[in-house]
Nucleic acid binder design. Structure first.
Lengths: 255, 255
DNA sequence: CGACTTGTTGATGTACATCAAGGTACGTGG
DNA sequence: CCACGTACCTTGATGTACATCAACAAGTCG
């Protein structure tokens, strides 16, 4: 997002963690002074990425772990013939590249959707985080579990919802996350992706995404034009998405 | 699996971790005596689950964390109208319910597919694992990252592969995991699930799954009858699944 | 008592007609 | 040029319906 990126000059080589723009705002917990000092020391630098920049490449190994300071980034996988599946989007505050630090090889690629500013951490030092700062280690696990939850929901979305439900769900999901990251004004947000990105996230073709998007617009629950997304009827949109959960089929509930 | 379950009598309240049937075999790393002692103390008991038993319920909170000792178990989510998406399968050695220990509420359900034996750990003690045993904490993160990788692949599968590719991929994936868990004899494995489970994993209807399964059988790369799965031509099956990875679309590779 | 029906249920196999989604083509506007 | 919009025809996937088969329980008859 140009606005946000401008607020943090890319020229500054290293914003001290004590002045991290993410602190205070957003859902970040409070760190102790010791934790803050360690993280500051852990951080090896910053990276400014332009839209379209590849941050990680499928089947290569990565020396770094990133935290996203500003901008949008997405993870994806590709098949040999070019079919692409977008797995998830990362917003400010998200951790990027943990898989590559745990396994040796990256199983997916990561690309910047907007101008993005990232904190860089060397992966070798991740271990010292586990030995010295259990609370931070727990945070890392927390982030991994949260990513897993989002993936679970995406899988349900792609596998079992109809095209209009899928789009409604995804747009609402992304809007909610943008809200949590403080990127919304009342009921609007800047959405930097294209219909092709949506299609590749939802497992649909571009044409069909476009037609379905039009049908969804006709419900007057939302508006999306020129990258500006606006929610007109949140409950209505949630209802189309089929947000509610259900009791299981299973006959024998445990205990 | 009856055979495996019989080998570990469900009556014994607590198999000591030193004698865990998973140790030695499988990809488990070696624990130090201290770690082993802690895990043994961490473990609060065992649970024997019959096929169809619900271990976790969507939108409830769970007091426990499990490790699967024997049998098959699957995670799934449901929509209000009964549509079901199976997210993943757990095999011996897998951790179950971490999400519920990190967040407060379970976002998915878990059901036993076969007779299953599980080690039970109280979730309150997870924190002491982080403070006292960083290597075990790292292992937990490792398991979470691995689960995330599998979900990534499932999402690619459901979102971007054709029906025959999807089935080929899933069967090969499950066979490979069964191999790692030591549940195969040469090129055969007992697969405890039905075509309905496959359909719900792949986001397809039962009828279409059946027809596609028949087309796949016609390629003579595998056979699946009466729960017995056999690989006839592994490379052929992998080729149908489109296992290979690809270079990204992106124009500007980083660095 | 045993052997032979009968009915039930769950998993699988197959045939339609219907519908949702894909692919190609060709628009527009910035 | 790229993102979006729309028309057209084709194909892949769904839903309903019905048939098969094995496993299992209940009942009947010799």
């Amino acid at each position: 997002m140009p606005a946000t990126a401008a607020a943090i000059p890319a020229s500054s080589r290293k914003v001290p963690c004590e002045k991290c723009p993410l602190r205070g705002k957003s859902a970040l917990r409070d760190f102790t002074p010791e934790e803050l000092a360690f993280v500051s020391e852990f951080k090896s630098g910053e990276l400014h990425a332009e839209p379209g920049t590849t941050l990680f490449l499928q089947s290569t190994n990565s020396a770094h772990l990133y935290t996203l300071l500003s901008g949008w980034v997405f993870r994806y996988k590709m098949l040999p013939d070019g079919r692409r599946q977008i797995l998830n989007y990362a917003l400010p505050g998200d951790l990027i590249g943990l898989q590559g630090s745990i396994a040796n090889e990256m199983q997916h690629s990561v690309e910047a959707l907007t101008d993005a500013l990232l904190c860089v951490f060397p992966r070798e030092k991740l271990w010292s985080l586990y030995t010295g700062y259990p609370a931070l280690a727990f945070d890392v696990t927390w982030l991994a579990a949260r990513e897993e939850q989002i993936l679970d929901e995406n899988l349900l979305n792609v596998g079992r919802r109809t095209s209009i439900e899928r789009i409604a769900y995804l747009l609402l999901h992304l809007f909610t996350r943008a809200e949590e990251a403080g990127l919304t004004k009342s009921d609007t947000a800047q959405f930097p992706f294209t219909q092709q990105h949506l299609a590749d996230t939802l497992g649909m073709s571009l044409v069909h995404t476009n037609k379905t998007l039009r049908r969804l617009t006709a419900t007057k629950t939302m508006r999306w034009k020129d990258k500006k997304f606006e929610i007109l009827d949140r409950d209505g949109l949630a209802k189309i998405a089929g947000f509610e959960l259900a009791a299981p089929r299973s006959k024998r509930p445990f205990v």
